[in-house]
Computed example of a mutant assay.
Amino acid sequence: MSRGDVVLKDNLNKLLKEGKSDKDQNVRPKWSDGTPAYTLKTFGVLNTYDLNEEFPICTLRPTAWKSGLKEDLWIYQDKSNDVDLLEEKYGVKYWRSWANKQGNLGLAYGRQMKYQHEYKEGYFNQIDRLIWDLKNNPYSRRMITNLYNHNDLHGMTLYPCAFLTMWDFDGEFLSMTLVQRSSDYLVAGNINVTQYALLQHMIAQSVGMKVGKFHHYINNLHIYDRHFEQAKEILEREPFAAPKLVIDESVKNFYDFKPEHFHLEGYEKHEQIKLEVAI
C-alpha cells in the first residue's frame, strides 16, 4: 500500500467525521454557477513521508504528477509567472483562470524566485542560495525558500498556497518541510505532495545527497461541499502498491532537469473521479 494512500484516507476520514463547516458564512470561493462553495475543514495537519523508502503518490485515483513536475520547473527553474509559457512549453493549461489580462500571475509564484537578494556572499535568487548553502554550509539551519512576500501580495492574482520550504541535512539524508496555508484536498492535494517530493529529489541529486523525510504541514485542509460523495467513493477503494520513481542519474545540475528525466515504474491506479473546481 502506498503511503500516499494511507495519508489520503486518514485525512478524508478526519474531514468527513470531524471537519468544521463554514456553511452560511460569507465565503470567497464560488462555483461556476455563482453558488457559494462551502467546505469542511480541519486545522493544522502534518503529513510525513520517507522519500528514501517510496514516492508518495496515491493509487486510489490518478495523480497528474508530471503536471506537478512541470509546475516545479516553471516556478523554480524558469522562475516564471507567465501562464502562456506554462501552456506553450509544458502543456499545463489549468492555471489560465488565475491569469491577468497580460497572461501572467502578476507578482506571484515564479516571480518571487526571480528576485536577487543580497547576502554577505553576494547576490542570489532563493533557489541558487539554497543550492549554494547545501554545497558550502550544509548544516545551516537557515535554508528556506518563501513565495509569500507580503510586500507583493497586492500584485498577485493568486496568493500562493504551498509557499514555504525549509531544508535540513543530517550528514546522510536531505529532508524538507513544506508549509501550505490552504489545500483544496481532492482537487490538488496529492499533486502538491508529488511536486514537492520531486523538487526535493531534484535538489538532493543536484548537490549529491540522498533524499530523506518530507514533512508536509497544511494549515487549512478542506474539501468542498460538491466533493463529499467523491470522497466517500475514494474511501471505498482498495489501494495498490506504491510505484517506483526512476530519475536519470546523469543529471547533476538542477537547471538541466527536464520532464523526460523522470519515470514511474508500476504505477497502478483506480479510475479518475470528476471534480468541479471552485474559484
Rank of each mutant, 00 (worst) to 15 (best):
S2I: 01
S2W: 04
G4S: 01
D5C: 02
V6Q: 14
V6D: 13
K9R: 15
N11Y: 14
L12G: 00
N13T: 10
E18I: 06
D22K: 02
D22W: 06
K23R: 14
Q25H: 05
N26K: 13
R28A: 06
R28Q: 08
K30D: 04
W31K: 09
G34A: 12
T35N: 13
P36T: 07
A37C: 10
L40H: 00
K41D: 12
T42A: 05
F43C: 00
G44C: 08
L46A: 00
L46I: 12
N47V: 09
Y49M: 05
D50Y: 14
N52A: 12
C58G: 00
A64T: 04
S67I: 08
G68W: 04
D78C: 05
L86I: 12
E88W: 10
K93V: 13
Y94M: 03
A99L: 12
K101Y: 14
K101M: 04
Q102W: 09
L105N: 01
G110A: 11
M113P: 10
M113N: 13
K114W: 12
Q116A: 07
Y119G: 04
Y119K: 09
K120E: 15
E121D: 08
N125P: 03
I127P: 00
D128R: 00
D128A: 01
L130Q: 03
L134Y: 02
K135G: 03
N136A: 10
N137E: 12
Y139C: 06
S140H: 07
N146H: 12
N146A: 03
Y148H: 11
N149H: 12
N149R: 13
H150F: 14
N151Q: 15
G155D: 12
G155S: 03
M156Y: 09
T157W: 07
L158T: 05
Y159F: 14
P160H: 05
F169D: 06
E172T: 10
F173D: 07
T177R: 06
T177Y: 06
V179L: 15
D184G: 08
V187L: 15
A188K: 10
G189A: 03
G189V: 06
I191H: 04
I191K: 06
I191T: 11
N192H: 01
V193I: 15
V193Y: 07
V193D: 03
Y196R: 01
Y196C: 02
A197R: 08
A197N: 12
M202D: 03
I203M: 08
S206K: 05
V207C: 08
G208I: 11
G212P: 03
G212T: 07
K213G: 00
H216R: 02
H216D: 00
I218R: 00
N219K: 06
R226I: 04
H227D: 09
Q230W: 07
I234A: 05
L235G: 01
R237Y: 10
R237G: 01
R237F: 07
F240K: 11
P243V: 11
K244W: 08
K244D: 14
L245C: 07
V246C: 02
D248C: 06
V251E: 04
N253D: 15
Y255F: 13
D256W: 03
F257R: 04
H270P: 03
I273V: 13
L275G: 03
E276H: 12
V277M: 14
A278W: 05
